[in-house]
Design a protein around this nucleic acid. Sequence first.
RNA 1: GCCCUGGUGGCGGAAUCGGUAGACGCGUUGGACUUAAAAUCCAAUUGGGGCUAUACCUCAGUGCCAGUUCAAGUCUGGCCCAGGGCACCA
Length: 836
Amino acid sequence: MKQAYFPQEIEKKWQKHWEETGAFTTSDESEKPKYFALSMFPYPSGKLHMGHVRNYTITDVIARFKKAQGYNVLHPIGWDSFGLPAENAAMQHGANPAKWTDENIAYMTKQLKMLGLSYDWNREVTTCKEEYYKWTQWLFLQLYKKGLAYKKEAAVNWCDKCATVLANEQVIDGKCWRCDSIVEKKYLSQWFLKITDYAEVLLEDLDKLPGWGDNVKTMQANWIGKSEGAIFRFEVIDAPNGEKIEVPVYTTRPDTVHGITYLVVAPEYKDIEKLTTAENKDAVEAYRANARKMTEIERLSTDRVKTGVPLGTHCRNPFNGEIFPLWTADYALAEYGTGAVMAVPTHDSRDFDFAKKYNMPMKIVIATDEILERMNKGENVVLEKVSEEGGVLVNSGEFNGMDNEKAKKAITQKAVDEGFGEFKTQYRLRDWLVSRQRYWGAPIPVVYCEKCGIQPVPEDQLPVKLPTDVDFSVVGKSPILTSPTFQDTVCPVCGGPAKRETDTMDTFVCSSWYYLRYSDARNSEKCFDRDKVNKWLPVDQYVGGIEHAILHLLYSRFFTKALRDLGLLDFDEPFKNLLTQGMVLKDGSKMSKSKGNTVDPDEIFQNYGADTARLFILSDSPPARDFDWSDAGVEGCYKFLNRVWRLMSTNADKIDIHNSTPQVGSLTKANDDLVRVVHMAIKSITNDISNDFQFNTVISKYRELTNSIYDWAAKAQWNEEDKVVFSFAIKSLLKLMSPVAVHLTEEAWSQLGGEGSIHEQSWCEWDENLAKMSSITLVVQVNGKVKDKIEADESSSEEELKELALSSEKIKTAIDGKTIVKTIVVPKKLVNIVAK
RNA sequence: GCCCUGGUGGCGGAAUCGGUAGACGCGUUGGACUUAAAAUCCAAUUGGGGCUAUACCUCAGUGCCAGUUCAAGUCUGGCCCAGGGCACCA
């Protein structure tokens, strides 16, 4: 065996070998149970970063471990390759987005292969290729036919810098998720997918996902934002021109309805003009104009002082006959609920602030114990601050004395019975805006005919190809509009002249179904074969960044449910288990080009090899936590791999992996101990990978095992028995390390004369009887404090352990002069003597 | 404000069921080998106090305060802090 460890040489050799032999292609036909391991596919931005390295290494180790355990593993990769950066690069450098993307994919593919990842490249998917986006378009048409894709005019989020609209999920703190520009509201006609139809089931089915972290599930639940309440309709008694008009409000506190002292509608409320008297018209108009000018950020800032103006009209509260005024104020949001709010200043902090400022009356209707006591003493209670807690109803007519939770139901029921209200469940989730005014995306496959209106492109005409005769130097509009050939077409219904839709789809549409395509990636007849998709899916383990907790993961769940309802699939959740890996940090902050604290994977491959990179990226933190990159840590891992290599290469003449089964029972103590250490390592490494993928402890156990073998070897006599035991230890270490140090173990396996590939060998088995030491260390405590440790026989009875403990000199001193009150014996572990 | 996650040495982090706190590594210190360096190997490394200075003893210690228990990093109650998410959502 070669003496020195040359990772670069070894890695290149085996990568070539695996590629030539198709070592990682997956067959659809297999007797073995299936396992689908998936990383979130990358955007081909140019080069891999350490976040990719961490993500793909984790999934690769899982895939290899499951394969060794006897699963038929699907481990594919692809490219989320539509999107703005390609288009921006094209605009800046006059290049073609397709070319830019292809070059990036080529480079990153090379890097992925250098990392030694076990992908089945035959199943690679690339979302910007016609063979893929044809099916994105086809799926869009299926959704359209089902009424799940529709076009409507709406106030939408507009990013001026990206010159396109954005989905709600892509607006972070009022800014564009890509470029951080402030997002404006525009009133435009756009394409939406009806994700709101699935709000309830998307929320409910989170309970079906025990393999997802609570953080992701609560983020999705918050985003869906379910609340239960009531709609009440209030009749306006003095509308201009004597018009009969009602204002509906949504509230989660129907129990406070007797405390209404005014009502607020959003400045954009649709009927606001009908609710405004002639005298108040100018002031209301001015207020509304001002609200329109404000940015979303200013508007939503919660510490802004609330403002508003009266409309001049009034409503009667049907519960108690009280008359209250209507106002408009921008703390009411047009898009949520009905756009109008019943204001109960005593029991809602926002209403309280507003009422304070404008001297609105306040009326207590829910009394806490403290308030009730003061009221019963005859005090006229005036609240200094808002009271949002529960209590009993007061000043509420027939409901007085009722618990407020019960009153919610009773009061709503009364409104239902009398015809001015109903129970209502409200969600914060909005429909998904999917059209983009950009070039580099899948064209939305519809045409507009003057006579026949919106018409879907017939399926046999798919794909609607992206035009190539476009000018990328245009600013402020989609390059697609510069194509002289794209727009003009004929109506599929009447054959008359028609215009093509020029918007393309949000890239998140492409990525909402890519994992399905892996089951049947080369199918040119269908987006996927039904049997194949049902065989491979759902994904058994999905691994990726937390930044997709809402966006991609929610959209994909929606797609899966919609496609199930379309009869294309038999399952309704795409990802059975989800691992959200932490970020890769350097010096405590996220790696970024602007901070200049990035580490280039290529450099690590060159200087230390991929095995070191893989080992290190898994070593220091559990996968879900942030990982702090350190050069010293890389160095340490490289040294460790050298240490493993040295252990084998300097003792290669003593290793015979074909004669590596020790005769347990007749071994010397030292040999028996080493065999036991190996069994313990197999057991705990297997468990650590199986439970939550604790790779950091797995790697520390590689080190412990290696240290134990070194210690043993220093004392070995190298007789026949020693050689067999040593061969067993080395063979086990190699296999245990093979999912991580993929090249080193393969090379060692080959040099030691192993058959085939080490990656084809089954996982190590352990014997429960050998996965523990032959003797135990008995811990002896006095009053709960450790006083002595004694070697004891594993089979000792409780009585024997007690005697052993009491025979210890240290224990005798410790309990000297005291009386033993009680003795607790934990079998095989501990004796605690309670003495006074 | 609401929700989630976390808080353990100089650092990253270990610790199935409540049962030896600090595995493993990084860093640091000392030593061996060497002309020297690199590489490698060995030893020490939570803090305070004591002693015959030892491979001994003792006290304290897992964010804080209580509690349960023979025994608490782990369980219960109440707080504090950090990171992340949501947020004038009625």
